[in-house]
């Protein structure tokens, strides 16, 4: 694979993306919402004296944060519990970009001229994957860093340490890029079968269900966040899915299939 060609595709895709304000909004909006809701709750709790009777359902969960005041434990629970939803950003955003990119090319019939150049299909896909994944990874990391720092400033520095735990740093560095990759590849495979970006995103929307499922399950299971073992198992599972999707993708996206079915 020649990096110069991957870079050329990436730069073109990036230019395309920057000119699409709606898509940029789709990148930024979920990231900000997922961070704003728990941060708002932390600020709300911080602004008031916490009545233990008001803790309600989360009372049983704050026992997971021993040796800290109940108010801070409640904030820690909220801060860490919502972090699972950060995994939705790499699941949703790259798929939106990838489907828009591939289907956009199908509609504009611009795949054939690109494949008529010395560009290899793998280089085309690598450039597209990078361009779709990078905004999501960047957005997730920025939100993660901002989330940890802002909550620490609003409430207590110990919240920052809960956010920047070894488990979550590992998850950010491994699970987030893997989920991004899976999302992009799924977007590309789905896009090879449909001609409308919205349909592709609706089909691809199923990819977020397991993540939401895990987030909800851990809440009801009494765990505020993942442990290292769960993150590593998650890495392995997503890596496996990436491998399977790559196999399907290489079949769906070989040069001849693209030209005879997609253009």
């Amino acid at each position: 694979m020649r990096l110069g060609y991957v870079w050329a595709v990436f730069a073109k895709e990036w230019r395309d993306l920057l000119s699409n304000r709606l898509l940029l909004g789709a990148v930024a909006f979920p990231a900000l919402v997922f961070a704003a809701i728990p941060t708002g709750l932390v600020a709300f709790i911080q602004a008031r004296d916490l009545d233990p009777n008001q803790l309600g359902q989360i009372q049983q969960y704050i026992v997971n944060f021993p040796n800290i005041p109940a108010k801070l434990a409640a904030q820690a629970f909220i801060v860490t519990n919502f972090m699972a939803y950060f995994l939705l950003i790499p699941a949703m955003v790259p798929m939106a970009i990838a489907t828009q990119s591939v289907i956009g090319e199908k509609v504009a019939r611009s795949l054939e001229p690109q494949l008529a150049t010395p560009l290899e299909v793998s280089e085309l896909l690598a450039g597209k994957t990078l361009a779709a994944a990078l905004p999501a990874v960047t957005a997730t990391w920025m939100v993660f860093i901002g989330y940890g720092l802002v909550n620490g400033l609003i409430a207590d520095q110990r919240l920052t340490r809960f956010v920047f735990s070894d488990v979550w740093i590992t998850a950010m560095l491994t699970l987030v890029p893997l989920i991004c990759l899976l999302s992009v590849l799924l977007g590309i495979v789905i896009s090879s079968r449909v001609n409308d970006p919205r349909t592709a995103q609706q089909i691809g929307g199923f990819v977020v269900i397991p993540i939401i499922g895990i987030a909800v399950a851990q809440f009801f299971g009494g765990n505020a966040t993942f442990n290292m073992q769960q993150v590593l198992i998650g890495d392995l599972m997503v890596a496996g899915l990436v491998g399977i999707t790559l196999l399907i993708g290489s079949w769906a996206f070989d040069r001849e299939s693209i030209l005879t079915r997609l253009t």
Binding site: G4, Y5, A8, A11, K12, R15, D16, S19, N20, G104, A108, R109, S110, L111, E112, P113, Q114, T117, P118, L119
Partner: peptide, 20 residues
């Protein structure tokens, strides 16, 4: 023609030039 709609004529040509 299969051009990239969001790019200018010059950017389209420059992109393909790089691919060549």
């Amino acid at each position: 023609p299969g051009l990239h709609e969001k790019l200018t004529a010059r950017q389209n040509l420059a992109y393909y030039g790089r691919l060549y």
